[in-house]
């Protein structure tokens, strides 16, 4: 049982590390300019010149996958980070103080949760307009409730423990108790939720960009490219294949990581 979990974690870590290397590579160097068009080499099939072939504008798909993975990864990272930060703050305060602040914020939380998340993201995008930073904002807002809820539950549970009573007795201030004493104890529990949240963010970014609401052309993102690839699915099946593979690996890596982490959050 422990062995399977450990193996899951290792495989996940391996895939994630591989993807991170690719992302880093894409940030520093790509074989071709990802946005450079070449009319002479439209829809070229995979070859040594173009590892993943070229798209309908003759752009090198390998270069675009490298860049697109990086862009999707960054958006997912930032939106999870945003949601986590706000979730820690809201969940921490409501869990710690309870009372009417807790009631009001949690009911607000529930009402956000009640919306289908993608629909809510669409509404937010309609308000903020599309684009890289707005999609981070929209996804970040969507992630707040789930993080806030987890944090609130954990903080409330920790607050009842004697070490918190002890800290109060020793004259430690509330905010220091919450952020210095309690928070380190809930991070292990949060870790697997963060990994799952990251996965959702990758998929959500892909869906939004697929719908044309996220990263705008000519910049690459996995969802954006998938939607382009769809048009040429029969003429250039490798386009969708490699883009889809990048999404799958990104999600699979973190999925396995979170599964490997899951359950052993408590010391």
């Amino acid at each position: 049982m422990i062995d399977t979990k450990d193996r899951t974690f290792r495989v996940g870590a391996g895939i994630t590390a591989f993807m991170l290397v690719l992302i880093l590579l894409g940030a520093l160097w790509t074989p071709y300019d990802p946005n450079a068009m070449n009319a002479a080499e439209k829809m070229a099939s995979p070859s040594l010149r173009h590892l993943f072939g070229t798209d309908n504008f003759g752009r090198d798909i390998f270069s675009r996958v490298l860049q697109g993975t990086g862009s999707t990864f960054l958006i997912a990272l930032c939106s999870v980070g945003l949601g986590l930060l706000a979730g820690l703050l809201i969940g921490g305060l409501t869990g710690f103080y309870g009372g009417w602040v807790d009631e009001v914020l949690m009911r607000l939380n529930d009402s956000v949760t009640a919306f289908p998340s993608l629909l809510l993201a669409l509404v937010l995008i309609a308000v903020f307009h599309s684009g890289r930073y707005n999609i981070i904002l929209a996804l970040g807002i969507i992630f707040i409730p789930s993080f806030a809820r987890i944090v609130r539950t954990e903080v409330a549970r920790q607050k009842a423990l004697d070490y918190v009573a002890n800290a109060k007795l020793m004259g430690v201030k509330d905010m220091r108790i919450l952020f210095v004493h309690i928070m380190p104890n809930i991070l292990p529990v949060l870790l697997s939720s963060v990994a799952i949240g990251f996965n959702n963010a990758v998929l959500a970014e892909a869906s939004m960009s697929y719908l044309g609401l996220g990263v705008q052309p000519p910049d690459a993102s996995l969802g954006r490219m998938l939607s382009e690839a769809q048009t040429y699915l029969l003429r250039a099946p490798w386009y969708a294949l490699f883009v889809g593979l990048a999404i799958v690996l990104l999600v699979l890596g973190f999925g396995l990581l979170s599964e490997g982490l899951g359950g052993d959050g408590h010391a």
Binding site: L161, D162, Y163, A165, N166, A167, L169, M170, G171, H181, P184, N185, A267
Partner: peptide, 17 residues
């Protein structure tokens, strides 16, 4: 500043520190 020693030494010490 009177202090207290709690019953449960598992709960009264912060496990993360």
């Amino acid at each position: 500043r009177p202090q207290m020693v709690f019953q449960d030494p598992f709960g009264s010490l912060n496990p993360a520190k």
